[in-house]
Design a protein around this nucleic acid. Structure first.
Lengths: 233, 233
DNA sequence: GCTGTTCGTGACGACCCATAGCGCGACGAC
DNA sequence: GTCGTCGCGCTATGGGTCGTCACGAACAGC
């Protein structure tokens, strides 16, 4: 039994290993010097490989970067999922954990976070709804907010019938047809607000720590959750 | 009098003209094909000039892009200022005009809007507070919000003493020492919220017009203004 | 008219992307 | 054990870009 040939061939194993090394080295270069420093030549040098060899794994530099964007999205999503997974706290504070994990990931991978929303990343982001890498985290957030809203108040609409319908359609496209408009609004609000704050924090808007972004974020989450649970929209 | 030599020499006039042409051609290339397509060679070709000549005007490609970022910031700021300048409407709806101008500019110059928050733009954005290109628009927004808040309610604090002090310092650094913490919060909230929504709109989050970003923005502005004018924080 | 400055040009070296073609080793068929 | 196939990495190469340099032409001031 011990000498049984493994499921994956030696070839596949080595290939996967090299593939992984390309990923790791690429991220190392990006985190150190930015995406612009990630050239096929530089990558190959850092791996003591020749540049053309990389093309056995990725068709072009753009393809490599697209792959890295996808992987980064998954890492971000995983970080958020893990942050709330083991927690037994109330849904409301788990929302804060989720968002804090988001900000932490962005702060510790600022170059990569910028990469996710750069021009070329649009191809990855604009996939059929429900298949975006971040939709999983979005679904998590929606579920948490539904739990916060439980038991649901009598009126779960936003007061804008058109917007309500758009929100229901948005939730349906993401496989959460039972989401109330107000929960969907809260999810979108939190997501856009946090992205706005983190994004501007990274560009140096709150330079010199004049304003602590985390305080602002908590304020914004509370406001969004409050708007969701309040009796009158 | 008619044949009097002009104030600027012929040389300066031609130089300024070429400078302007470089700017215009650069923006044309960026708007058409993205920043990555803006190469010194391509720019020179589009101007029927030789590539090295461009270096008489900009020390490097990065320097050119940095300049374009600054100019774009100014255009954006100007667009916002003009949107509210001639309006006699109530301050509250002028806030909406200001923000709508922001979104309109971003939508009609999406490639450039992305450029403003790209990695290399951090150098421009993280200048001494009060000197950022967008500070002028920010001051405009703060003034409008102060007008909305007029007469100021008895309690203009956020309820968080640390945050209050940070906000006052932030306002001082921007030459608006009389800004109340709540007005400052509202300004920052609006600015970060709108940036978040617009930014995600541009990356295709609300693809297929599932959700109308303008509705969301108006909702968010109202919420921020309401939080500012409400009696209890 | 002469001189120094400014501007644009072709030529050049270094770097990068991507392709083509070769050699080597692993693997399977017999 | 031998041979053909295939995957992988390498060198060589072409086309493109950045940025520098030395040179010629136009201009400004005397």
């Amino acid at each position: 039994m011990t000498n049984q040939p493994p499921a994956v061939s030696r070839r596949e194993r080595l290939r996967a290993q090299t593939f992984q090394e390309i990923e790791d080295s690429s991220f190392a270069i990006i985190d150190a010097d930015g995406v612009h420093a990630l050239t096929i030549a530089a990558l190959a040098r850092s791996m003591a490989m020749s540049a053309p060899a990389v093309y056995r794994y990725f068709a072009s530099r753009d393809a490599l970067i697209a792959h890295l964007v996808t992987v980064s999205y998954q890492q971000l999503t995983t970080a958020m999922a893990e942050a709330v997974e083991g927690s037994r706290r109330a849904p409301r504070s788990r929302v804060r954990l989720l968002v804090a994990a988001y900000r932490d990931w962005a702060l510790s991978h600022r170059r990569r976070y910028g990469m996710l929303f750069a021009e070329r990343a649009g191809d990855v982001a604009s996939r059929p709804p429900g298949q975006t890498p971040l939709d999983q985290a979005m679904a998590l957030l929606v579920d948490l907010l539904a739990a916060v809203q439980n038991p649901a108040p009598a009126d779960t609409t936003t007061g804008d019938r058109t917007l309500d319908e758009q929100l229901r359609q948005w939730a349906r496209a993401r496989g959460r047809p039972d989401t109330t408009p107000r929960a969907a609004t809260a999810a979108i609000r939190i997501w856009t607000r946090v992205h706005g704050i983190v994004s501007l924090e990274l560009t140096g808007m709150f330079e010199n720590r004049t304003i602590e972004a985390q305080r602002l974020i908590d304020l914004e989450i509370d406001s969004a959750v409050h708007a969701m649970t309040a009796t009158a929209p």
